[in-house]
Write a protein that binds this DNA or RNA. Structure first.
Length: 423
RNA sequence: GGAGGAAUGGCAGAGUGGUCGAAUGCGGCAGUCUUGAAAACUGUUGAGGGUCACACCUCCGGGGGUUCGAAUCCCUCUUCCUCCGCCA
């Protein structure tokens, strides 16, 4: 959520920045500013009314103490009006506050100055590309065929047990998943991230905190009996660990990593592009979450990008990095780099990581602040990134490393999987 | 799931209707002393709103109520503890 302070002080800049999302923000911001003004006017009036009532109460107390009951009763009568008035003002204030809240919730984050304007993924800007696309042998197969051929992943079995989009990993397929998870966690902890195992269900407050609610309600599985949500990403529970905290500056930066399954309803997406592992209702992901001082967050974002690059290079996968344009940028993000690996058999790029700086957008909702050395309190900056989303890594590994007689895994995975070749 | 008890500032812990935003201790910060540190002593130390700054308002787990007045009384929800049941 954008801060009121920023909306009041930098409205023109915000209108310009939000314009990159193809959003005509001027009228929305004016509405917010108007609501905020009336909210504050109501608050001031209510405060004055309460102050008067408090004063009277104290006097009444004194009078009772000194036995002047009659005088006290006279004053009592006077409080009735004040009570009525403060009740009314309180209700108006509450209405104003919830209206303001509602408007604020609907405003997406303002894109960073480097974000290109644009409508869709066609306007994303490629900022880096590395790795050779391998020459495949004549009968190269897409990963869903390979998964079947070597009995690694059974999609039909998942349909039987649960439904479409819930694959069953078997044998070396399961072991490859586990090996990748361990490899990612080891690399992340070596880079200074603390490993976290968070809950896989979160409450509504957490969903609101990181911005999945209220706008993406339909994307999450909702356990209505207990009013909990299955997490769509580890970002939600891990970032919410810090919800409402007032940290010391010396505690920053905070760097967490965690593996969780991720659950997404992906309502309405069917077709060739969601075949196999390309889009699932349940998938595994190792996530990175950082909390930074405001002045450090962009350096930290660069650091995360470098870290993820290192992983992809060790996995020897051809990849590219895109700077997302305003139209493709997530609701809460100020700047996002998407990592895509090339899936040779499918001849397309697959998104496997998204690294974002949310600046203070999330922390404003989360009320995540820190106290700097001079005692000033300010909202922290939050960032996150995937390292990495498993299914598409698996898809790319299977497809890119396939040979006539099996799949040769990149060296770094051998010890993690306990085998070097799938055949 | 059943029966009881509890929830107060960074922590511990007083406070059962009226100058209580809250005693006291610990911790934190500043100072005195010291070559330096420790100890000791003195002062200071919650959060949000509001203001140029004050004033002022709100907050004692969340929500609602009683009262001129609530940390204190009532209702409700949540969480924690003890006992019982169930259970990986």
């Amino acid at each position: 959520m954008l801060t009121l302070h920023r909306i009041r002080e930098e409205k023109d800049k915000l209108v310009q920045a939000l314009g990159k999302r193809q959003l005509e923000a001027g009228p929305l911001l004016d509405k917010v500013i108007g609501l905020d003004e009336s909210r504050r006017a109501l608050q001031t009036e209510l405060d004055a009314t309460l102050a008067e009532a408090n004063k009277l109460s104290k006097e009444i107390g004194q009078l009772f103490k000194s036995g002047e009951v009659e005088k006290a009763n006279t004053l009592k009568a006077q409080t009735a009006d004040l009570k009525e008035k403060s009740k009314e003002l309180g209700e108006q204030l509450q209405t104003a506050e919830s209206q303001l809240q509602e408007e604020l919730y609907q405003l997406p984050n303002a894109p960073h100055s480097s974000v290109p304007a644009g409508n869709s993924e066609e306007d994303n800007e490629e900022v880096f590309q590395k790795g050779e696309v391998p020459e495949l042998h004549g009968e190269a197969l897409p990963h869903w065929e390979l998964a079947k051929k070597y009995d690694l992943i059974d999609f039909e079995l998942g349909v039987k047990v649960t439904g479409a989009g819930f694959p069953v990993y078997k044998g070396k397929g399961a072991r490859l998943q586990r090996g990748l998870i361990n490899y990612f966690l080891d690399r992340n902890t070596a880079a200074g991230y603390t490993e976290i195992q968070p809950p896989h269900l979160v409450n509504e407050a957490s969903g609101l905190g990181t911005g999945q609610l209220p706008d993406k309600e339909g994307q999450m599985y909702h356990v209505t009996a207990d009013d909990l949500y299955l997490i769509p990403t580890a970002e939600v529970p891990i970032t919410n660990i810090l919800r409402g905290e007032l940290l010391q500056e010396s505690e920053l930066p905070i760097a967490y990593t965690g593996y969780t399954p991720c659950f997404r309803r992906e309502a309405g997406s069917y077709g060739a592009h969601v075949r196999g592992l390309n889009r699932l209702h349940q998938f595994d992901k190792v996530e990175l979450v950082r909390v930074e001082r405001t002045e450090d967050s962009y350096a930290a974002l660069d650091g995360m990008v470098e870290h993820v690059k290192g992983l992809l290079e060790e996995l020897q996968l051809p990849y590219r990095i895109l700077r997302l344009c305003g139209g493709d940028l997530g609701f809460t993000s100020a700047l996002t780099y998407d990592f895509e690996v090339y899936s040779t058999a499918q001849e397309r790029w697959l998104e496997i990581s998204s690294v974002s700086n949310f600046e203070d957008f999330q922390s404003n909702r989360l009320k995540l602040r820190y106290k700097s050395a001079d005692g000033k309190k300010q909202l922290a900056h939050t960032l996150n990134g995937s390292s990495l989303a498993l299914p598409r890594v698996v898809a790319a590994l299977l497809e890119n490393f396939q040979k006539e007689d099996g799949i040769e895994l990149p060296e770094v995975l051998h010890s993690y999987c306990g085998f070097s070749k799938i055949d």
